[in-house]
Amino acid sequence: MDFKEKVLQVIAEVCEDDVVKEEHDLDIFEAGLLDSFATVELIVQFEEQLGINVPITEFDRDTWNTPNAIIDRLNELK
């Protein structure tokens, strides 16, 4: 699995929905797939499964809103 697939897998697990693997530009907050509580879980899983520490204060809904955007941000932090 390449990095992109791994990230998509983590997002799909936390959202409990495979839609994110298919629609990479879907706004996951607008679609109601992720609330504030699941957001925290997502950050924890990035750390656990990908070894990337995303400081919670860096997480902004406007720039972490789609699977593609999340992959870009994680690439920057890698």
């Binding site: 959202c15 409990e16 929905d17 495979d18 839609v19 298919e22 679609a31 109601g32 797939l33 609330d35 699941a38």
Partner: peptide, 27 residues
């Protein structure tokens, strides 16, 4: 074609009637 499309349609339906915190995360 796919389950996630059905899920998206159901979510949309539910959002008209229920507050976001009452909408299930997983289908």
């Amino acid at each position: 074609e796919k389950e996630y499309q059905l899920t998206a349609a159901i979510r949309k339906d539910l959002a008209l009637r229920l507050p976001a915190y009452m909408i299930p995360r997983k289908f």
